[in-house]
Design a protein around this nucleic acid. Structure first.
Lengths: 342, 342
DNA sequence: TTGAAAGCGTTACCAT
DNA sequence: ATGGTAACGCTTTCAA
């Protein structure tokens, strides 16, 4: 069913039917009602490609997802961000498309999206330190919102971010206050902006409290299970192994925990683990909880906010950039993060 | 830059330029080269909406993702499936769009996708037992591939699935052979087809080996951390707690492990845990490994295969349905899955 | 309040 | 081997 046949059915012109369906004021209430009912009855939906061609709007948002060529896996929180975003898109009538990029040349991906007129705007995922894509998107005039920020970029841009520095600073302080001094940091790749901020929070806490920072306890890689497992094994074999491990991703944490099990150590007695990226809201019921922070749910939230921002930016492109910082929730307790044994 | 201005630049007609760019044979090599170079130079890409309108092909695949209204989180393996699929789509020139559906009325989502002519085909995610969407899609004539299968649907359809029954059967047998008799199953929602198959594998193994099946040890819910934590706590409080837990999702397993830690039990001594959905390939290096099976990586693989199937189905719609079963890899060892202590 | 017709950027048919 | 033109399904301008 297309507009033409629908109009014929109704004995009206395409123009009138189109106007009725798109809420133009100059059509009589009677015909509007008649048209709407007929459209409903025939299950008419405007052809999105034709509509896009006529209006110059794709009603589509692009998400470009860089995946490393080494590890093909996708960060699980990605799904949560998308879930949040799609919620907001639905509200504004947008659809959502994805372009995955193998080895990281995402610039080209944005260029093509724009050249093909496939999208009205994009979300920039996984910003690096001093990310050149931001300047590129600004130059192209393609509306965008960054999920995260990019240290070193001076031009203004819209972003939604979680306060990574603060979350890691607080977690580190928490461990130090319990008496830990040898605290390991298993961080994400430090070319990623979020990883840099997390490291920053960790280092700041250590220095503030006068605890020496040992480079041997700071390791950064893609956040896989393998990484968590391997580095934990290596650190446990050191002369002075860490008494606590602060890890950047729930996936890495799985590897960490496996390594601890394998080594015959007991979690919470021999060693403490704090995991970021994890939803522990269910552990908050008044009793001591294992720990910790920052939450898949807040990522979902970020997705929703980013999408809403983008919708606004598309409607009025000359608006100044919008920013929004979300605080990670820190859930603390002592059952698996006790003081070190001696 | 559009076709018209590109043609003007070249002093050729739109027709010729279009033909040159789309690999039609009736254009001379000389002009083809000239056209291609100019297109490259000007960064010309055909407007995807115009092209779609003219060809009747959207060059777009739809993925409809049902998320529960209770837990807004998205299953992490979803990202892996998508990563695999996008790889294949790229090869065939398709883009990929998403429609998330809140409370599970995905039928309407498919209807709209087709009515809007937004997609050339869809991937059906998360099939239920006797899933009505399969009949619907067949009736609509929209090409589709199911990720998973649907017990009770008799009409033929294309699918890619992991052998869930076999994976859980083997894992259960493995535990039984170690001497376990009280083995808990933390399953996904049993309206989901995959959960039914996993349960089936578990029960089959128990019955084959003559081990009584205790309904109190079989629990099924959405695969959250909360679920894993809560049910593990409950079962550990039983008069005869399980000596091993078989769990359906790596997320659930996190909750399980937390509950075990909280209870002061030692993993691998007091209790054993086997996790599905987990990538443990890194643990296979000849030594005893914690365990187990089935792999985010095989989900990624499934995505790639499903996408390729779909591309073929779209090209020749009268083809008979294609099916593909993937075997989950079972990685076994004894370090955290020893015999029960007495 | 309604309708005719041009236009969006392609492809594909029919000529030449 | 190349070009003119209709057609894809919609919105929007202009007229009535």
């Amino acid at each position: 069913m297309n507009l033409k046949t629908l109009a014929e059915q109704l004995g009206l012109s395409q123009t009138t039917v189109s106007r009725a369906l798109n809420g133009y004021p100059e059509v009589s209430e009677a015909t509007r009602l008649r048209v709407e009912q007929a459209a409903e009855q025939f299950g008419y939906r405007p052809n999105s490609r034709a509509k896009g061609l006529a209006t110059g709007r794709a009603m589509m948002i692009g998400h470009v997802i860089p995946t490393s060529n080494k590890h093909e896996m996708v960060n699980p929180v990605f799904g949560d961000f998308v879930a949040g975003a799609s919620e907001a898109y639905a509200k504004f009538g947008y659809d959502m498309m994805f372009a995955r990029v193998r080895d990281g040349n995402t610039e080209q991906a944005y260029r093509e999206l724009l050249a093909k007129r496939a999208v009205d705007g994009v979300v920039l995922q996984g910003p690096l330190i001093n990310d050149s894509r931001i300047a590129l998107l600004n130059k192209m005039g393609l509306p965008f919102v960054v999920h995260g920020r990019s240290t070193g970029v001076s031009a203004p841009y819209s972003w939604v971010d979680v306060n990574n520095k603060r979350a890691f600073q607080r977690a580190t302080e928490f461990l130090i206050d319990l008496g830990h001094r040898r605290i390991a940091l298993l961080n994400g790749l430090e070319t990623m902006d979020f990883a840099q901020r997390r490291r920053d929070g960790y280092v700041t806490a250590m220095e503030d409290r006068g605890v020496p920072v040992d480079p041997a306890l700071m390791r950064a890689q893609e956040m896989t299970e393998v990484f968590g497992h391997q580095e934990t094994m290596a650190m446990l074999a050191m002369d002075h192994p860490p008494t606590a491990i602060l890890t950047s991703s729930m996936i890495t944490a799985i590897g960490v925990r496996r390594a601890i099990e394998e080594s015959g150590l007991k979690m919470g007695r021999d060693i403490s683990v704090i995991t970021h990226d994890d939803d522990l809201s269910y552990l908050k019921n008044g009793r001591d909880v294992p720990i910790f922070t920052a939450l898949r749910s807040s990522v979902r939230n970020a997705g929703e906010i980013a999408a809403a921002m983008l919708a606004e930016l598309i409607d009025s492109p000359d608006q100044p950039p919008m920013n929004r910082m979300l605080e990670a929730e820190l859930v603390v307790g002592s059952s698996t993060a006790p003081a070190p044994r001696d």
